[in-house]
Design a protein around this nucleic acid. Structure first.
Lengths: 202, 202
DNA sequence: ACCTGAACACCGTTCAAGT
DNA sequence: ACCTGAACACCGTTCAAGT
């Protein structure tokens, strides 16, 4: 019973990723209150001290989790932009739709990412997400679709609007609209995005 | 020593408010992690079980705290609007400045208010804040300053933008701008607000 | 190297008991 | 009515000890 087995590798040798996946499931299922390091360890089938071999403390695990979220967000924005290559305005609208959809399908993850409770280089991940938006704006300026201004300023205007919508949606605070469902949310995002593009002024 | 004293009223008789004030100080000083019900009780000089005479549980205290924040936000927006009565665009810009300033001076409170972790009728408080913005938009439409559309749609466009900016500022995630300080933030808010008003399109 | 189990100081919540 | 103190099941973190 000892020679037949491969080297034991104490639990799959990939505990780090197993912990992160368990943490994400716990987070989206039970909220931040349910995401205890001990529960993550239980869920992964190891002792409550085992995670400390892979993460300095709970904050380090949350930061790693948050990083995953930022990577997905960046890719979602880039995919949306790639789907409307010849039309900067449509790129912007679809990037917003992707942004808000992700927030609504992973609300707890979004609150973790933008909750600001995390130490460490979260800023870098956020920066790369912003950069994906800024690229759309720079291309749009180059094509003459957007105003000839600092691309970062336009990107900030677009980002804050989509981000505010996403955070309100993630927190379930957009219920003043009688419409519901994903299609209704997409419509709301498009309406807000169009107002950002064309302005509110008469 | 017994007849001279007024009826004892076990700790000021106003423990409810004392607890809320202690909670707010703890929140802004030590973050959400430092805001334990036991720490609040210690800070108020009562036993750790005393708060349960005034709040059903910890969530109820957080909700009451959150309510205070929404009241302040609503008043701040109304005051900003009152300061520029004859100019709807300026009303909107100054409301945004007030919104973001409050978020930056009370970041933990803002995250509590919009974190979405709270049960109960938080929606109503948020609604009243949104209503303060919607009023500015309706007035602006009536005066011909804003587009002749559904006031709620315009208010949503303005709100999401200011809210996104406020949340990013509260989370310390606007550091990509090399400028710092309150004046720099006000400038950023005004720039974003102007882009919302006049649009991004060429 | 990787994991365990006991230990410590903390939590939220409950409940009998005191005045 | 209002508050206390002990109790319970949970945390995050540390650390000696095991293989």
């Amino acid at each position: 019973m000892s020679n037949r087995e491969p080297p034991v590798r104490y639990h799959h040798g990939d505990l780090c990723n197993v912990l992160l996946e368990a943490a994400e499931i716990l987070l989206e299922h039970s909220g931040p209150a349910g995401l205890s390091l001990r529960a993550v360890a239980r869920s992964a089938g190891v002792s409550h001290a085992a995670p400390y071999r892979h993460f300095r403390d709970k904050a380090a695990l949350l930061e790693a989790l948050s990083r995953r979220g930022f990577e997905r967000l960046q890719h979602a924005i880039e995919r949306a932009a790639a789907g409307a290559m010849q039309n900067p305005e449509q790129q912007l609208v679809e990037a917003g739709v992707a942004y808000v959809r992700l927030a609504l399908s992973h609300p707890e993850m979004f609150r973790l990412m933008f909750g600001g409770v995390l130490p460490g280089p979260v800023g870098e991940y956020r920066q790369s997400t912003f950069e994906a938006l800024a690229k759309i704006m720079r291309d749009g300026i180059a094509r003459g679709a957007f105003r000839q201004r600092d691309g970062e300023e336009l990107a900030l205007a677009a980002w804050t609007s989509m981000h505010g919508l996403a955070m309100l949606a993630a927190a379930g605070q957009l219920s003043f609209s009688p419409r519901d469902g994903v299609q209704a949310l997409d419509d709301t995002v498009r309406a807000v995005a169009r107002n950002v593009i064309y302005g509110i002024a008469q």
